[in-house]
């Protein structure tokens, strides 16, 4: 074969790939089919958790226990360091750590392996790729709910009630659910192609943990607090966290969180629609 024929064959493959509009239609169809198979995704997610903890007596409650010990010790040390009253600080810390560590951060880290951990399935079964995204979401959701016990216990111990405002956390959690599907599709595709993205994401999440008010409170930065809005994770966290603390999130938080979610969804649709036909070769 001659040199030129090699490149022309390659171009033909690219040409035969459908154009952007039909790619997006196919991606949307994949997402819709995936949602129709939600029972499969839920079962897969449950089984993942069960396998992870098979052989341990406590099962997923290990997570709860680890988190409880961590929050307890962090609460004691940091309340001393920051000169805060434990009764004020511990409820804040517990809900923040849970929402970050087993919520946003866990989801982003897990979403990287959405497709790479399903290699066998993707290569041998014709299944909507979105099922794998929903499976990752389900797995994170289960871990999250096991850990939610810790802040609830803290609230009970200190006799604090968030009041009726806690229902405002529901629409915010719904936003998180939408974001999680988008992130799984987005990072799942990117990490299937480029295997050095997961460690990069890991380092970035570590940095974000320190610059986002999680172990410290926004009011501690005083007049500079408005700077925090430049960190999109701050708003995403605030819309869920404030209702749990019996407060109403600011409209700015909601606007930024909503905007960033729309952005995630569009970016995910773009990346997923372009990667879909190549995913089977990437994983």
């Amino acid at each position: 074969m001659m040199v030129s024929s090699g490149s022309s064959e390659h171009t033909r493959l690219l040409d035969s790939a459908p154009r952007t509009r039909s790619r997006i239609v196919m991606a949307c169809k994949d997402i819709a089919d995936g949602f129709r198979l939600w029972r499969l995704a839920a079962t897969l997610g449950w089984l993942d958790i069960r396998l992870q903890f098979s052989g341990s007596t406590l099962g997923p409650f290990w997570l709860t226990l680890t988190t409880a010990v961590m929050i307890g010790s962090m609460g004691l040390i940091y309340s001393q360091l920051f000169h805060l009253v434990l009764r004020d600080y511990l409820p804040y810390l517990s809900i923040s750590i849970i929402l970050w560590q087993t919520g946003l951060s866990a989801l982003i880290l897990e979403s990287c392996s959405t497709f790479t951990r399903a290699t066998e399935t993707l290569r041998s079964v014709n299944m909507p790729y979105t099922v794998q995204a929903l499976r990752t979401m389900m797995r994170c959701g289960i871990v999250f709910s096991y850990n939610l016990v810790v802040p609830v216990a803290v609230f009970l111990i200190f006799g604090i009630s968030p009041g009726a405002d806690v229902v405002l956390a529901l629409p915010a959690l719904l936003v998180w659910l939408v974001d999680s599907v988008a992130l799984c599709l987005l990072l799942g595709c990117a990490c299937a192609r480029f295997r050095d993205i997961p460690p990069i994401v890991g380092s970035v999440m570590q940095i974000i943990f320190y610059i986002t008010p999680i172990i410290w409170e926004p009011k501690q930065v005083g007049a500079h607090a408005w700077w925090l809005y430049f960190n999109p994770f701050y708003s995403l966290l605030e819309i869920v966290r404030r209702p749990f603390l019996g407060q109403i999130p600011t409209a700015t938080s909601w606007l930024i969180a909503g905007g960033i979610s729309v952005f995630f969804c569009l970016l995910a649709l773009f990346v997923f629609s372009r990667s879909r036909s190549k995913l089977a070769f990437w994983v």
């Binding site: 035969s16 790939a17 459908p18 039909s22 790619r23 196919m26 993707l122 290569r123 041998s124 079964v125 014709n126 879909r276 036909s277 089977a280 070769f281």
Partner: peptide, 10 residues
């Protein structure tokens, strides 16, 4: 089986 090139027009 629709695993490779699921959306190819040909």
């Amino acid at each position: 089986a629709g695993i490779y090139m699921p959306d190819a027009p040909n």
